[in-house]
């Protein structure tokens, strides 16, 4: 029993944190968000470091590491709110790696792993996926729904950019209209991986919003003392820690099951997404409250995190939907056996 990263994984985390902190000073993030664009140079750099293919098997040009390494990067990307098309690309890669035929994998994975191709993934309801990150500039889009899974080239699909509250990322609505190829394999491990990547991002977002609140609570003085000395404020910060650490534990555990205990993966992924979706929003909202009026201004950086948290919460299944899945998978509604 050892619930901690290996030395290599620690090194990945440290490197990612330092690199992202250096490349994405918040003024830069803000500038790109206002312009609605990404940092192409940084994306190129991350590609050269092999990030997009971190979890993709070596024979398809990836680094052959696991979902644990993926969530390590995702958490740091969320913390930095890095404006790069990483999440969408990874989600599509996970789906194709899980459910694609050999031919499909050979066709798409090497490009996704190197970042030469851009891929996106969306959840279809009815005949449309309403919230697909980065679909507008993707080469290929994976669509996953009750009726089946398809991989379609963007040129063959209807892709309509949508403005969301989260200006740090681009989103679109997508209809396949029957185009593309079916993904015939079991897509669930891929979907679970994508959901965990989103949960990891939410964890990073929550961590940052909490740190901002704690710092502000130390610095800001009212009634002659730092506001962090008032328990209404300090207990709210303690609650942020509880929820952020919970999201983190759930995400790491889920990632570990992806690599080591696949029979638990779906349950763990839904637990993580349900919890992190609520936690991300609540931590950001409480952080806003701690900041008072300044937290409500466009000028302050917090709102970018708040909005990302909300959109991530809605992406690839809401907290309620994932909780319903948890109820299903953890045998609510069947006679319970003895716990293992």
């Amino acid at each position: 029993m050892n619930f901690d990263f290996s030395d290599d994984q620690q090194a990945i985390k440290r490197t990612a944190k330092d690199l992202l902190a250096d490349r994405f000073k918040f003024e830069r993030v803000r500038e790109l968000a206002e312009a609605g664009s990404y940092d192409d140079d940084a994306w190129k750099e991350l590609r050269e470091l092999g990030w997009p293919g971190i979890f993709i098997e070596e024979r398809y040009g990836g680094q052959g590491l696991g979902v644990v390494e993926l969530v390590i990067l995702m958490e740091e990307l969320g913390y930095a709110l890095a404006p790069v098309p990483f999440l969408s690309n990874a989600a599509a890669g996970l789906m194709i790696q899980a459910a694609g035929s050999e031919e499909q994998k050979q066709r798409w994975l090497p490009g996704i792993a190197s970042g030469e191709l851009r891929a996106a993934a969306g959840l279809v309801r009815g005949d449309e996926a309403k919230l697909v990150p980065d679909a507008d500039e993707a080469d290929v889009i994976v669509l996953c729904g009750a009726e089946g899974r398809r991989v379609v080239e963007r040129s063959a699909a209807d892709v309509e950019t949508v403005a969301t509250m989260d200006s740090t990322r681009r989103y679109a609505r997508v209809r396949a209209n029957g185009a593309g190829d079916a993904l015939e394999g079991d897509h669930r491990p891929g979907m679970s991986g994508a959901v965990l990547a989103a949960a990891a991002e939410l964890t990073g977002v929550a961590q940052r919003a909490m740190e901002m609140a704690v710092q502000y609570a130390r610095d800001r003085k009212q009634f002659g003392r730092p506001i962090g000395a008032y328990q209404a404020v300090s207990h709210s910060c303690a609650q942020m820690l509880l929820e952020t650490e919970g999201a983190r534990s759930a995400t790491y555990w889920g990632a570990w099951t992806a690599d080591a205990e696949p029979e638990t993966l779906e349950l763990a992924a839904s637990m993580a997404k349900a919890y992190a979706s609520d936690a991300g929003w609540r931590v950001c909202s409480s952080s806003l409250q701690v900041h008072g009026g300044i937290g409500f201004t466009w000028e302050h950086n917090l709102h970018f995190f708040l909005k990302r948290a909300k959109v991530d919460a809605l992406l690839w299944g809401s907290a309620s939907e994932h909780r319903e899945r948890v109820a299903d998978l953890s045998a609510v509604g069947v006679a319970a056996g003895a716990p293992a």
């Binding site: 349900a274 919890y275 909780r323 948890v326 109820a327 953890s330 609510v332």
Partner: peptide, 9 residues
């Protein structure tokens, strides 16, 4: 069901 799932988590 939602409350049970939340507790499970």
């Amino acid at each position: 069901r939602q409350r049970l799932a939340q507790l499970t988590i």
